[in-house]
Amino acid sequence: MAALRAGLLGVGMMGRHHARVLRELPGVQLVAIADPGGDPHGVAGELEILPDVEAMIAVGIDIAVVAVPTAFHEEAALRLAEAGVHTLVEKPIAHSVEAGRRMVDAFAARGLVGAVGHIERFNPALQELRRRVASGELGEVYQIATRRQGPFPSRIADVGVAKDLGSHDVDLTAWVAQSRYRDITARTVHKSGREHEDMIIMTGTLENGVIVNHLVNWLSPMKERLTIVTGELGAFVADTSTGDLTFYANGTFQTEWESVSVFRGVSEGDVTRYALAKREPLRVEHEAFRDAVLGLESDVVTMEDGMRTLELVEAAIASARSAGTTSGS
């Protein structure tokens, strides 16, 4: 079978990694790169940098990756759908729910694979976490809490931290728990003088009763990417920046310390860090997209999945707006 001819729109900070993986991926041939801003990271190689999506389509492509700023996702995706090109769009799916819905409908109407780059689903720590939670290793799950914080990336200008980073946590939480959200509320902070929020705390409940909490910001000098799942038998901690998964078991020894022994909770037990095969999440994501296009079994994140996540994030932002936000001086 001939390799799928791939086009890449956008070769910025994320696009350069897509270019590398597309070149390495079996069954795929990168044949076109387009970016109106040129090639700042020098990834084009022997390929000409094309000016826009139209020029990329004209080369003749089967699949495309859209890695331009969120505000341009809809325009590019609709044109690719019209041209019959299966497309993977970076997260979030679009700048608004309305735009995202138009994208979902366009790909569905033409029977095309439309996917969204929620890359955390392909992180080895989270994949192993999901498997262990599903097999009952925590017993009943009580809570899922995430922390995703670090310095502000100056390249992000068209959305706030909720859509750029928070969408990761909303998506991965529902996926790990295998349950959709029942409700979500939030509070936001604006401290950097930008139009959009740079800190958000989201709280919600999943349909299976698990309570969730997401702390997301661009205001911390400390970079953190943690997912903590707590249940009746202990807690899992997944560090997606390193791909590590650690289990903190509830203790089995009785304590003789009188002031603590009256507390009817849990005690510290054994700590286990699992040895995992750590494949690059972006490569695994591309494999899933390729397989979906080929009609094979795949864990690709669909545009419908991306839409549900965007709807929840927008609901959280609306919740914060109606409650009032904290503004910088």
Rank of each mutant, 00 (worst) to 15 (best):
I228F: 06
G27K: 03
R121K: 07
T227I: 09
N208E: 06
M56V: 02
G234D: 05
R121L: 03
T309G: 08
V133K: 12
E256A: 13
T302R: 10
A19V: 10
P51E: 03
R225K: 14
A238E: 09
L22D: 14
A177G: 00
L47D: 06
K163Q: 15
R101W: 07
F247Y: 08
F263Y: 13
H286R: 15
R101G: 07
G45D: 15
A238F: 09
E54Q: 14
G160D: 11
E304F: 11
T173H: 01
R273D: 09
G7N: 02
D244M: 12
D169G: 02
A316T: 02
I49H: 01
G306W: 08
T185M: 10
D39F: 13
L276H: 04
V65K: 02
A320D: 11
G209S: 12
F236T: 15
E75M: 08
S220A: 12
I63F: 00
E258M: 12
L226M: 07
T227G: 05
V43A: 06
A235L: 10
E48K: 14
A316N: 11
I317F: 10
V159I: 13
L4E: 00
T309P: 00
E140M: 14
K278F: 04
R148V: 01
K163F: 02
L294S: 12
V301P: 14
A44P: 14
L4A: 07
K91H: 03
E258H: 11
L22G: 15
T326P: 12
K163W: 01
L78T: 07
G209L: 15
A235H: 04
A134Y: 12
A316C: 08
T325Y: 10
F253E: 13
D299I: 00
G243Q: 12
P26W: 06
L312C: 00
V53M: 00
V97L: 09
R187E: 12
A109N: 15
G139D: 01
D305M: 06
A315I: 08
H41R: 01
A316Y: 08
L78Q: 11
G234S: 06
T246M: 05
A115I: 02
P26Y: 06
V89E: 00
H214I: 02
T309E: 13
P51C: 01
L50I: 05
D52P: 09
S261H: 13
R23Q: 10
E195G: 14
I201C: 10
M56C: 02
A125H: 05
L310N: 02
A235V: 09
H95D: 09
K191R: 09
T203E: 14
R132I: 08
I33F: 04
T255E: 11
G7L: 01
L50H: 02
